Simulated assay, not measured.
Amino acid sequence: MATATTYGARDHARAQEGTRAEAMPVVPATDWPAPPCSAGHLVWAETVAGGNYTHRVLARGTELRLTDLRGDACAHVVLYADGRPWERLNVADTVKVQWNAYLTKGRLLLSGQGRVLASLTEDTGGRHDALCGTSTLARNTARYGDGSPQSPSPAGRELLKLAALKNGLEPRDLPPSIAFFQGVEVRDDGSADFTGSAGPGASVTLRAEQDLVVLVANVPHPLDPRPEYVSTPLEVLAWRAAPTAAGDPFREAAPEGRRAFLNTAEFLAARGQS
């Protein structure tokens, strides 16, 4: 179809309606072919290409599942309390308050205010990282020749900046991210050992404990030793559910978690949310 004229370009664009690409959002999400819940509950369905990003505002109680489809995705995630960008993921507090640097089922993602942003309710992979953050423009330029967002090797921070801007946030609002699906372990001498992927099909599920802004960049882990830029598709699905209730094992597993949930409940109650 000729696109040299405005009419031709219009007809070509309209002809793409209904076309499905490997990596794209599905709108409405309820058209996703195999939802993990009642199809009517699905609110976000997208496949994020390697070297790309996505973002969404999710209501409290929503469950978000990330899946590494081919074994070389790495989801760098930042969370904010919706409407309060100063309350955002604090990786240092997430690690130190829970006395554990390794993310897995049962861990909580905490804000700097000592409140729970999300609970990690399922984890089939076990290889994640809360220590190294994401890649930068300078590092990717030195390593791959370019790290700009439109390049073949975009840096995670550059993509997260774009996602942040689309939610009214500025680069200064970006805290360190956490990474799912590419693992790091700390050696006895304090250095970091890259443990790589758990393989295709690994997934994690997060439960939103407040209304959240979610930013995700799917780029190689900064410690990935391979000389080439390797990043494969990431599946993102979210569905309506309920926040963690009083008495739930996630709230009662440890004193630190109980206090974080109490802080969250008190704050939400003052805002008229139970």
Rank of each mutant, 00 (worst) to 15 (best):
residue 124 T to Y: 09
residue 125 G to A: 14
residue 127 R to D: 04
residue 127 R to N: 11
residue 127 R to G: 00
residue 128 H to F: 01
residue 129 D to A: 05
residue 130 A to R: 11
residue 130 A to P: 00
residue 132 C to P: 00
residue 134 T to I: 04
residue 134 T to C: 12
residue 135 S to D: 06
residue 136 T to N: 08
residue 136 T to K: 03
residue 136 T to I: 05
residue 137 L to V: 04
residue 137 L to S: 04
residue 138 A to G: 09
residue 138 A to Q: 14
residue 139 R to V: 08
residue 140 N to S: 05
residue 143 R to H: 13
residue 143 R to Q: 14
residue 143 R to T: 13
residue 144 Y to R: 02
residue 144 Y to E: 04
residue 146 D to H: 06
residue 147 G to N: 05
residue 147 G to D: 06
residue 148 S to A: 14
residue 149 P to V: 14
residue 151 S to N: 07
residue 153 S to R: 00
residue 154 P to Y: 09
residue 155 A to Y: 03
residue 155 A to D: 14
residue 155 A to G: 11
residue 156 G to I: 03
residue 157 R to H: 15
residue 157 R to Q: 15
residue 157 R to P: 00
residue 158 E to W: 00
residue 159 L to M: 10
residue 160 L to E: 06
residue 160 L to K: 08
residue 161 K to I: 14
residue 161 K to P: 00
residue 161 K to N: 11
residue 161 K to S: 05
residue 163 A to F: 10
residue 165 L to Y: 11
residue 165 L to N: 10
residue 167 N to A: 03
residue 168 G to W: 07
residue 168 G to L: 05
residue 169 L to R: 15
residue 169 L to A: 12
residue 170 E to M: 15
residue 171 P to E: 09
residue 173 D to I: 13
residue 173 D to N: 15
residue 174 L to P: 08
residue 175 P to I: 06
residue 175 P to D: 04
residue 175 P to H: 07
residue 175 P to Q: 06
residue 177 S to G: 00
residue 179 A to S: 15
residue 179 A to V: 05
residue 180 F to N: 08
residue 180 F to W: 14
residue 181 F to D: 09
residue 182 Q to G: 06
residue 183 G to T: 05
residue 183 G to Y: 05
residue 184 V to R: 04
residue 184 V to K: 02
residue 185 E to G: 02
residue 186 V to T: 15
residue 186 V to L: 13
residue 186 V to R: 12
residue 187 R to M: 07
residue 189 D to M: 02
residue 190 G to T: 08
residue 191 S to W: 01
residue 192 A to W: 13
residue 194 F to I: 01
residue 194 F to P: 04
residue 195 T to N: 03
residue 196 G to E: 10
residue 196 G to M: 08
residue 197 S to N: 08
residue 197 S to H: 12
